[in-house]
Design a protein around this nucleic acid. Structure first.
Length: 445
RNA sequence: GUGGGUGUAGCUCAGCUGGUAGAGCGCCGCGUUGUGGUCGCGGAUGCCGCGGGUUCAAGUCCCGUCACUCACCCCA
């Protein structure tokens, strides 16, 4: 019985997911990010500090706990992201960590939401963050963007991606320079631009954020600016608004965009997009979102940003910058549309056919000889007709069937039908056949 | 949490104004007596989501319920 929102994968899909996780780990470690895993549960008060997501937290309770006894409640919940647990971890282990501390964390998280395509109750996130004590150099904003961009580019079987970057200081400075009375309200309205038509947002800017029609038009003009290089700066200047915070934000965003120059390919675009706002209010500077071509309705599949007070113990503040990839959100829709799978559903590259039960020992020896040389091999379960055994391999995508013989062995590539004499001590399949390969299909319209 | 849609074979679905369940794909077998795929022939498979009601009779109508799904909210 499938539980909605708690996806379970078939073996070929899990293989693809493993390939994604392997490549992410590889890229993150290549940049020196340390591996980290935190416990699955956090104290409720820890999680409820940020945002209004309290309803979404799965609470932990003993089956035999007395529901009427408040003291029997564990006070624990499953973590709903990896940022808040990381903040708690940094505070607890500050004495053992070297700052700036760079870590990656790939784990399941849980949210008690209503499931939908791209929205799950249990899903995997891959986070990278850099956190420092007291102050964090701005160049880490660039670093985080570059590392994730590189990691995304390494997932070369995905549809084209668009990493969109903006800056909260830029937006706030612009809104302040414009004379907006309620900056957060402006932010919320602009954040809805990808959901509702700009006329509606414009009306909301007037009605809810208290802007004049002219000010609202300026905000929409700002949100319409995007560029693949730092040319957005002059576009903003052309709007004639000035504020110190605006200049600071423009400088930071230009630095991030320039810092990512050279990463852009036909598969991954990095651009400044001044409509990106992010709902979460703890971001204070750089903000990231990522969209996947053909899957825009999923929203962002990789987001994050700069937060100046990720954690604080009262005396010391730990600012950070990070970005989080929604591995599950990314993969499940591709699986559902049949755009992504693996070349086979089992690791085996070779099936050793079993002529009869007496031959099992010999077949096991052949298999062991192949395995010793790194070739994943299984022996047929029963001495069925060879046609059946070949079909067994075909169903699973196993590319080779090995036929033992008294005078000599033969191995058949069942895709081509080619069958040749072979020695288990020396025969080696092409490298690509050793492991299942990720297969991606182009979107067909 | 709010609002819409849908629940029939392993999968995708069809089943008219109620008369006791079908197709395609897949699966199994045979043709092919130890080498699959193509082709041909044959075969198996259903608490028609669950509970109740109306009726001589319910997959079909009514009520309830659960599940799935889409949108809002929010977000990876």
């Amino acid at each position: 019985m499938a539980l909605s929102g708690f996806p379970e994968l078939l073996p070929a899909q899990r293989f693809v997911e493993n390939a994604v996780l392997d490549r992410l780990r590889h890229t993150f470690e290549l940049h020196g990010f340390a591996p980290l895993e935190t416990r699955a549960v956090e104290p409720l008060e820890q999680m409820l500090r940020k945002g209004e997501i309290d309803k979404e937290v799965y609470v932990l309770r003993r089956l035999h706990a007395d529901p009427d006894d408040a003291a029997d409640s564990s006070g624990l919940g499953l973590h709903f992201d990896l940022t808040v647990p990381f903040a708690r971890y940094v505070l607890e282990n500050a004495g053992h960590l070297e700052f700036p501390f760079r870590r990656y964390q790939i784990q399941k998280v849980w949210r008690g939401e209503r499931p939908q395509t791209g929205r799950y109750r249990e899903f995997t996130q891959a986070d990278i963050d850099v956190v420092a004590r007291d102050s964090l150099s701005f160049h880490h904003d660039v670093e985080v963007a570059r590392v994730m961009a590189e990691a995304l580019a390494a997932l070369d079987f995905l549809p084209p991606l668009r990493l969109q970057i903006n800056n909260r200081k830029l937006m706030e400075g612009f809104f302040l320079g414009l004379g907006a009375p309620d900056v957060p309200a402006v932010m919320r309205a602009v954040d809805r631009l990808d959901k509702v038509p700009s006329e509606v947002v414009g009306q909301q800017l007037v009605d809810d954020a208290g802007l004049t029609l002219e000010q609202a038009a300026q905000c929409l003009a700002l949100a319409g600016i995007r560029s693949l290089d730092s040319s957005f700066v002059s576009s903003v200047w052309a709007l004639g608004v000035s504020h110190p915070l605006l200049d600071e934000g423009l400088g930071e965003l230009a630095a991030v965009i320039d810092g990512c120059a050279g990463i852009t390919s036909e598969r991954l675009v990095v651009e400044a997009d001044l409509r990106i706002a992010r709902g979460l209010d703890y971001y204070t500077g750089t903000v990231f979102e990522t969209r996947m071509a053909g899957f825009e309705s999923l929203g962002s599949i990789c987001s994050g940003g700069r937060y100046d007070s990720l954690a604080s113990d009262g005396k010391v503040t730990y600012p950070g910058v990070g970005i989080s990839l929604g591995v599950t959100r990314l993969l499940i829709p591709l699986f559902q549309q049949g755009l992504l799978t693996a070349s086979r559903s089992v690791p085996s590259a070779v099936l050793v056919a079993l002529p009869d039960d007496d031959a099992r020992a010999m077949c096991d020896t052949i298999a062991q000889t192949l395995r010793a040389r790194g070739i994943p091999t299984e022996v047929a379960a029963s001495p069925q007709k060879f046609g059946k055994q070949i079909r067994y391999a075909e169903r699973r995508g196993i590319p080779y069937v090995w036929f033992p013989g008294a005078e000599g062995h033969e191995v058949k590539d069942i895709r081509s039908g080619d069958q040749v004499g072979a020695d288990p001590a020396t025969w080696t399949p092409p490298f690509v056949d050793l492991q299942p390969q990720v297969i991606s299909q182009k979107v067909v319209e």
